[in-house]
Amino acid sequence: MPKAKETVLEIDLGALTHNFNYLKSKLKPTTKFLAVVKAFAYGSDSIEIAKHLEHLNVDYFAVAYTKEGVVLRDAGIKTPILVLHPQPVNFNTIIERCLEPSLYNAKVLNAFIKIAEEQSQANYPVHIKFNTGLNRLGFWENDVDYVVSKLKTTKSIKVKSIFSHLAASEDKDEIEFTNKQIEFFKLISKAFENHIGSKPWLHLCNTSGVLNYSEAHFDMVRCGIGLYGFGNSAKENENLFPVASLKSVISQIHKIEKGETVGYNRAYKAKGFEKTATIPIGHADGISRIYGNENGYVKINGCKAPIIGNVCMDMIMVNISDINCKEGDEVILFDAANKASDLAESANTISYEIITSISQRVKRSIIK
């Protein structure tokens, strides 16, 4: 592969295919696969990712907000799209663009019914979310009767699925809690089905749920981080390929004497004669200030170069005193060999945060 000549995020669609097929291999043939492509497909490129997954016959997409779904529709995506956190102000747009809302409390349920009736909709597909322990969004168990009573007053909407979200499916210390969530979800779903007289799809599992709780796959699963190459465990990370690689170049090399300082607020002081390299990427590109002051690092010619001083808006400086390199050489922030999860751990954060933070001003390069 050609070396980077500027800051670029390379997106490997072959890795995406591998991850999709690996996760699907964990499912029964009848279990549907929903791909989560929110937040620019976890910081990559939602349009390219969605188009490729559509080509692979994915069953559903999910986005966080209405605008993200509109972007996919504008790009020609035809696959059903679930909007996980819709706001009532966007309900007209949701219907206009054939998006499907998650309805998670009385306010949004009533507001969507009102809009659907005003637009003379019939059996518009909606998804009812219940809270089983994450305590973020969702109706409570004792809301089942209320939800059903509202549904029986209108023909404008029809429940396509009932779903919830696992809170700690990757954590072996929380197996008991997760099992309680699964059983709670079963009870809620059964009560709902008994009241409404039909059987909507059920879905509960995220990536870690898919990998760790096969008994809870139900009718559909929702995979996000796993599609992009991370399985939330060292073992599963070996079975998945990171889709995104963030690369840059050395813009300039400096030689500094003992006691000289580097960057804003003179945050780094040279311990002796040292060489530093300046790289054109900064916190405006998604490399947070938490990676500064030797918390994070880059790879140059296979060697670790710690980030020194404070991360600037558009640049970082790294210590290359022991590295044989020159201006224009490629710099790896993360790739398949030097994973984003490793860089994230160096600053006590998670892979989700760094990959979803990559700014849209960083050039995307699609590898097909």
Score class of each variant (00 low, 15 high):
D314E: 09
N131I: 05
D329K: 00
A191C: 14
N212L: 03
S214I: 13
K5C: 00
V63A: 04
V37M: 08
S149L: 02
A75D: 10
A191S: 12
D74R: 13
G76A: 05
T178M: 07
A64H: 14
R222N: 10
L13E: 05
L72C: 09
T178Y: 05
K271T: 13
A270Y: 15
P280G: 06
Y60G: 00
A41Q: 04
W140F: 15
I316N: 09
V159Q: 00
D219E: 08
K28D: 15
I49L: 03
V331K: 02
E183P: 05
S321N: 13
E118D: 11
G302M: 11
G133P: 00
E257Q: 09
I128Q: 01
I323G: 02
K3V: 00
A4W: 04
K51H: 12
I290K: 11
E118N: 14
N319C: 03
E176D: 15
M317S: 12
K160I: 00
K235P: 01
K107Y: 12
L240C: 01
Y124T: 03
N105M: 05
V331W: 12
V210A: 04
K28E: 10
T153W: 02
H195M: 10
Y213H: 13
I332S: 00
K129F: 10
A111P: 10
L84G: 07
G226E: 07
I47V: 13
A35P: 06
Q121K: 12
N310G: 13
K180F: 12
K158P: 08
L9P: 06
G328H: 08
K186L: 10
V36F: 07
I350Q: 09
